[in-house]
Amino acid sequence: MSVSRRGRPAGPTGPVIGRALRLLDAFDAERRELTLSDLARRAGMPLSTTHRLMQELCAWGAVERGTDGLYRIGLRLWELGSLAPRGPGLREAALPFLEDLSRITRENVQLAVREGAEVVFVERIASSDAVPVLTRVGDRFALTATGVGLVLLAHAPVEVQEELLNGPIVRYTAKTVTDPAQLRRMLADVRSNGFSISDRQVTMDALSVGAPIRDRQGEVVAAVSLVVRHGSTTSHALARLVRTSAQAISRALSV
């Protein structure tokens, strides 16, 4: 399932940079390889302009062009992205605890951060027997539906909460909560209980329980969750494991 992309860049940096970013934004989890025509169409630009800009992006290493003529995201962007403090730094601190949680449960373990009005998944570990999930590392998803998303939304600034609760809320299944009043009560419960419950809100066979990860100032900077097959266990049994892992990751970030 594809998810909404960020807003298109604009402003005093000029149209060339903006158009180059639009070309990079044409790639997503479902479209990792694109032809020049595909890029031009998805970015809404003339083919000649697309060709010129893609040559420059290839020269810098932001994209690569294979022998089949298809364009792909280049390693230079991956190298640059590895410098983001909320990505690899958080992942490195959290990974030992995520792996422990995965070994204990043999279920899906997810680590995510909030960017604007969306969840960004930083890490995911799953055993071969775990329930299938829609998310992958680097994917974006609605804050209102997933276990990690509900945690991050519950601790987001009030203006972010109001923007999402007053706008259209994405429905994934018949169980997805789209009523703003009910969501407000759920977010209050997350803050009070210290964990979230997403019961069949994303797929009808999955239950997710999330917990907040805090920095040394006590601010919520990320969330961890377990995603299991619905009916296999209770949410409160999962909550103890998830909260313990979240607290351990929080301590590691504070060192």
Rank of each mutant, 00 (worst) to 15 (best):
A188F: 12
A188K: 12
D189V: 04
D189S: 12
V190A: 08
V190L: 09
V190G: 09
R191D: 14
R191I: 15
S192G: 12
S192D: 13
S192F: 13
G194H: 10
G194E: 12
F195G: 15
F195I: 13
F195N: 10
S196D: 14
S196G: 09
S196R: 07
I197S: 08
S198F: 11
S198Y: 13
S198V: 14
S198D: 09
D199P: 12
R200M: 07
R200W: 14
R200V: 10
Q201C: 06
Q201L: 01
Q201S: 12
V202Y: 12
V202C: 10
V202L: 13
V202R: 04
V202D: 04
T203M: 02
T203Y: 01
T203E: 08
T203P: 00
M204I: 14
D205C: 01
D205Q: 08
D205N: 09
A206L: 03
A206E: 08
A206Y: 05
A206Q: 07
A206H: 03
L207M: 12
S208M: 10
S208H: 07
S208G: 09
S208A: 15
S208T: 11
V209Y: 04
V209M: 10
G210N: 13
G210D: 02
G210T: 04
G210W: 02
A211C: 08
A211E: 05
P212R: 02
P212L: 03
P212K: 02
I213F: 00
I213P: 05
I213M: 01
R214E: 06
R214L: 08
R214M: 05
D215T: 13
D215S: 11
D215K: 04
D215V: 08
D215Y: 06
R216L: 05
R216F: 07
R216T: 09
R216M: 04
Q217D: 09
G218A: 08
G218Q: 03
G218T: 09
G218M: 07
E219D: 13
E219Y: 11
E219I: 06
E219K: 11
E219F: 09
V220A: 03
V220D: 11
V221Q: 02
V221K: 04
V221M: 05
V221L: 02
A222N: 00
A222G: 00
A222S: 00
A222P: 00
A222F: 00
A222Q: 02
A223E: 02
A223R: 01
V224E: 08
V224M: 01
S225P: 06
S225V: 03
S225M: 10
S225Q: 03
L226Q: 05
L226N: 07
L226W: 02
L226E: 09
V227E: 01
V227M: 01
V227R: 00
V228S: 06
V228A: 09
V228F: 04
V228N: 02
V228E: 04
R229A: 04
R229T: 10
R229V: 01
R229L: 03
H230Y: 11
H230G: 01
G231I: 00
G231C: 00
G231Y: 00
G231Q: 00
G231M: 00
S232H: 02
S232C: 05
S232M: 05
